[in-house]
Amino acid sequence: MNSLASCIFCKIVKGEIPCMKLLETESVLAFMDIGPIAKGHCLIIPKYHAEKLTDLPEDQMKDILPACKKIATATRADNFNLLQNNGRAAHQVVDHVHFHIIPKPSDAGDKEGLVIGWPTQKDLSKDEISKIFEELKSRL
């Protein structure tokens, strides 16, 4: 777990580590990913240090999706993924909320961009899904 002092993204926000800055607002910074999985792979981060999306105060979220949209539009990619991971089991490597814009060329197949499977939980019945729905709804 990264502490605030050792967080690579916080160091980028503070200017201690250089980045290829694309966009900056009062609360958000967007820059090129230095370990891209596609041409044009970019990161959008809140300047506020929070490990997971659920840790990020709502007042720090207002610029995130508009920045993602601007960056995605600037890539001119017809196809792209907007990815945000939370926790090691979900493939989060840097313990600071961040969003990936990953262009996916139509002809790339598994050679460029995000490659995923979609393991549909076919053994969940409608009744089980309905029960989960009711539990989630009660927590909102």
Rank of each mutant, 00 (worst) to 15 (best):
M1L: 05
N2R: 07
N2S: 13
N2D: 14
A5W: 04
S6T: 15
I8L: 13
K11P: 05
I12T: 02
I12E: 00
V13F: 06
G15V: 06
E16C: 06
L22F: 07
L22E: 11
T25V: 08
E26H: 07
A30I: 02
A30W: 00
F31C: 02
D33L: 06
D33G: 04
I34R: 11
G35V: 08
I37R: 02
K39C: 04
C42Y: 04
C42E: 06
C42T: 13
I44H: 06
P46M: 09
Y48N: 12
H49P: 03
A50Y: 10
E51Q: 15
T54G: 15
P57R: 13
E58Q: 15
D59F: 13
D59L: 12
Q60F: 03
Q60W: 02
D63F: 02
I64C: 10
I64E: 08
L65E: 14
P66Y: 12
K69T: 10
A74H: 00
D78I: 03
D78A: 13
N81Q: 06
L83H: 10
N85V: 11
N85W: 04
R88D: 12
A89T: 14
V93W: 06
V93D: 12
V93N: 11
V94W: 06
H98K: 07
F99C: 03
H100M: 05
H100W: 04
I101S: 03
I101R: 02
P105E: 05
D107G: 04
A108R: 02
D110Q: 10
K111V: 00
E112P: 01
E112A: 04
E112Y: 04
G113E: 00
V115H: 02
V115S: 05
W118K: 12
P119H: 07
Q121V: 10
K122F: 10
D123H: 14
L124Q: 13
D127S: 09
E128S: 08
E128Q: 14
I129Y: 03
I129M: 12
I129V: 14
S130Y: 07
K131Y: 07
F133E: 10
F133M: 05
E135W: 01
L136A: 00
